[in-house]
Design a binder for these strands. Structure first.
Lengths: 217, 217
DNA sequence: AAATAAAATTAGACAAACCTAATTTTATTT
DNA sequence: AAATAAAATTAGGTTTGTCTAATTTTATTT
């Protein structure tokens, strides 16, 4: 189908396109992939030639219908493999992202469908991200963060925005996982730190950045 | 660990090293990978620098201890993934080889061990090849072919030497799989064709090449 | 609006892994 | 042993995907 690099660009562009009101510029793509903008310009030309993206200086990069379809398939494979690694092979949730980054590029046409069936058609991956179905549809992603909550309310962790192992290991240490109940006790107005109670236990203080990376319901 | 290409060379050299009394020359490696001998010479230099192989004009290419270890790990991963694809995802045995060629390069250190445990420590892959264990040991490969049998004897299919889908689909059509009972009724001396009876059914004639690619016990 | 800063682009280079064509070395015949 | 064939090697080129440095374009300040 596409090269490893092409797929990684498609995925990065897709991810950026999910963030509302963000113009997808060469610099944004470069930052997202840790690449040089000059390299991005080359790849924009290549993907434009392949009719997977369109590039307009005014509005930035956008995916074509085919490009979006291909990107969603890669995301689908990534998230299905994550479920497999966690549920079947017993990995912890801070270990699965990097392995799924490799597995998502395995190209057999029926593999994702078979894996999905084998896993029992999961709707969400272990980080709470919705898994695209074969037809491209998927459940609505969670969007309300812990930092968006009102003081005095209680919620449940639904997903994490950051899938880095540093963040996930911190969560593991705090005993926070998908489904954990968190009460927002206080917002420190000085730096927007959050005082929370995890599963009804003693209060803990976490940063604003932390709160923005936890999605709740 | 290594690049995709390096791993494929290691695997090819390992495979050639399993064939008794065959000197591993640049040309042999080139043929085995479908590459140009000039490219092979480049890679021999690279793998020699990395101390994975040794090259002596007189005796040819050989794997170092590290090189063999790395090659066996790739074979281990390949065969474990084949079991997974067949048993868990419901692929047929003519479909799994190419997918496993991709999966074998996934590099996480504990993946093979976890997969092996998940699959119940299989000893042989779906083509009858022994699966190397974590310590590098493995069951003895089958080595007696149908063409080696005496006329009038009966045997069971234990493994296939050729894993191309053309060959495996032919076997599927003939209703031959691992465990199938075959009686050798007659050898045609003109071209060494074999007249066989599959599971006690009516006779079928197959070529010498066919018989050499079926290993029996 | 002019000056300055930032972003985008071009130009040219590089490493990996391949190739072809030419040459050298080794092996096989006669 | 000389002639011939085959194999190995070198030299130089190509593609992919990256880079740095220089330049041009666009955006932001003053």
């Amino acid at each position: 189908m596409h090269t490893l690099s092409e797929e990684n660009y498609l995925k990065a562009i897709y991810r950026l396109s999910q963030e509302e009101g963000v113009k997808i510029t060469p610099t944004a793509i470069a930052d997202s992939l840790g690449n040089n903008p000059a390299s991005v310009v080359d790849m924009i030309r290549k993907l434009t030639d392949k009719q997977l993206i369109a590039y307009d200086k005014k509005s930035g990069v956008s995916l074509t219908t085919q490009g979006r379809k291909d990107a969603v398939l890669i995301v689908r494979r990534h998230r299905l493999w994550e479920v497999f690694l966690l549920e079947k092979l017993g990995y912890h949730w801070d270990e699965i992202h990097d392995i799924a980054e490799e597995l998502e590029h395995i190209s057999d046409t029926t593999l994702a469908d078979r894996l999905e069936k084998f896993l029992g058609f999961p709707e969400y991956d272990p980080h709470g991200d919705p898994i695209p179905q074969a037809n491209g549809k998927m459940a609505k992603p969670y969007s309300v963060s812990l930092a968006d909550m009102q003081t005095g309310t209680t919620c449940q962790v639904a997903a994490v925005r950051d899938t880095s192992s540093a963040f996930l290991q911190y969560l593991l240490k705090l005993n926070i996982g998908i489904g954990t109940k968190i009460s927002l006790e206080e917002k420190i107005s000085y730096d927007n730190s959050l005082v929370i109670s995890i599963n009804g236990n003693d209060n803990t203080t976490v940063s604003q950045k932390f709160g923005e990376n936890i999605l709740v319901e």
